[in-house]
Design a binder for these strands. Sequence first.
DNA 1: TTGGAAATGTTATATAATAACACGTTCACC
DNA 2: GGTGAACGTGTTATTATATAACATTTCCAA
Lengths: 171, 171
Amino acid sequence: MPDTSIPTAIAGTRHDHSRCISTAMTTARSLCAQKGVRLTELREQVLNLIWQSHKPLGAYELMEQLARETTRRVAPPTVYRALEFLLEQGLVHRINSLNAYVGCTHPRQEHATNFLICRHCGVAIEFASVPLESSLQASADELGFVIEAHSIEVVGSCKRCTDQGVASHEH
Amino acid sequence: MPDTSIPTAIAGTRHDHSRCISTAMTTARSLCAQKGVRLTELREQVLNLIWQSHKPLGAYELMEQLARETTRRVAPPTVYRALEFLLEQGLVHRINSLNAYVGCTHPRQEHATNFLICRHCGVAIEFASVPLESSLQASADELGFVIEAHSIEVVGSCKRCTDQGVASHEH
DNA sequence: TTGGAAATGTTATATAATAACACGTTCACC
DNA sequence: GGTGAACGTGTTATTATATAACATTTCCAA
């Protein structure tokens, strides 16, 4: 049985998050340089803000934080255009069920959008799994469906929240 | 290897759709009776409109069609409340990537939300797969994540559109 | 038959995203 | 170095999606 985890799935575990941020930013810069696309100051600022945590961030929250940070006024198209760029480059993902955006943990690999989303702490954990992809492909094949892209959004309780008993304090 | 298809996955294939509609309505009525919840005229109308096709329908389109059909004015909360009810009863699903709603093809079974969505004709094909669910569960287990719900949205080209060569006429 | 819960109506507003056009910056090419 | 076309950003307005809050009606059990 193949290893289905990705080594970088550290969201939802205790870790030095400043390293996540710096790694993400460095990777983004070199990736953009490689592709010959421009990671402008604005785009870098937006990416950096998104990477402040592993919790998906809404476009309007992002907008507010950006305005606060830069003093200049920021209108929706400003953030949406930056997000569009970052999505195209595979540097961020959109979480459809939350209308929110989160940094991609392994932008160098071709991959789909698979997330475990904790209902308690809000963290979105990106994951990959070979058997998962194969069974998805098998289902599609059976129905003659040609896959172009897919997104999996799983909602539940992450290890930390479960261990801390957050999940049981519900009403 | 287990059979991973569901017998009712006929969206995207040639079929007598009026039977889909009548089956869905009959099942809904008996299911609601069984559960002791009220499938009111409005809710039934909304469900019926959603079932006019296998293409997910937006809330505002639904609202317009409902207004046309009933002559009385219909405001957003009217449809959203009906949708909320139908979602709770498992009679419809929400397609997050489209902000749209589609009838559930097997509301009697406990199940997740898995869809193949054709980019060309718009049809959403609900499917289920045991191996898919197990590998998803395995991924979650590895990370200590407790699953409560999930949704899988696959975008691509359905068999009919692929066969008709629609997919190759793109620019 | 009546009173309370559930459903629906109504008005206003919140939240998310895009269209359209103006202005500025960058960079390859002359 | 100049220049213009492509790209990026600013700005205003609008569209699309969804919900809050409260009024009114309907249903059904006691």
